[in-house]
Simulated assay, not measured.
Amino acid sequence: MNLPVSPAASAAALSEHWSPRVIAELDDSYIKVAKVLGSLAWHSHDAEDELFFILKGRLRIEMEDGAVELEEGQAYVVPRGARHNPVAEQECLIMLIEKKATLHTGTTMTAKTRSITEQLGDSMLS
């Protein structure tokens, strides 16, 4: 049986920035949480949309045609193929909903890139 999970508490408990953790599965998608600060990397997901939901703080998602500013309680879907760069001026807690095939930073590899194995490592999935 699945147990209830608190996305905000799960994100707050993370010790590393930009290192998402899977907390649940929904059909062919993962529900992930992350603690973020600073800039991630310009990247895109060619075949998948990506939902950002702000649990605490503020997040700016820079895109080639402008930026979207998100506050606590707001959500935004980055459309597949859109180059974007998430930026948090102060520490921010986020929840993500992504297809299981979605690569953390698309085909862009940086020191912050995490594999799905790393994202599942501390997961709450049973």
Rank of each mutant, 00 (worst) to 15 (best):
K32Q: 14
A88V: 11
E16Y: 01
A34S: 14
P7N: 07
L14C: 09
L93E: 08
C92G: 04
A111W: 00
S39H: 10
S6C: 14
N2D: 09
L14V: 09
R80K: 15
V87Y: 06
P4T: 09
G106R: 05
E91L: 09
L14Y: 07
R21I: 05
E16K: 14
E91T: 15
S10N: 12
K35I: 04
L96P: 06
R60C: 10
A67Q: 13
Q90N: 08
I54Y: 05
L103M: 10
E71L: 06
F53P: 01
A11W: 06
E62K: 05
K56M: 08
E50H: 12
K100T: 11
S29P: 01
R60Y: 00
M95S: 09
E62H: 12
I61S: 09
K35V: 03
M95G: 06
L37G: 12
D65T: 11
H104P: 03
L51K: 13
P4D: 07
D46I: 12
E48W: 08
E69R: 07
Q90P: 00
D49T: 10
R60S: 13
S6H: 06
I97E: 02
V22W: 03
R114D: 01
G57N: 13
E16Q: 14
S19E: 13
E50R: 06
F53A: 03
K32I: 08
F53R: 03
A41W: 04
L14R: 12
K99E: 10
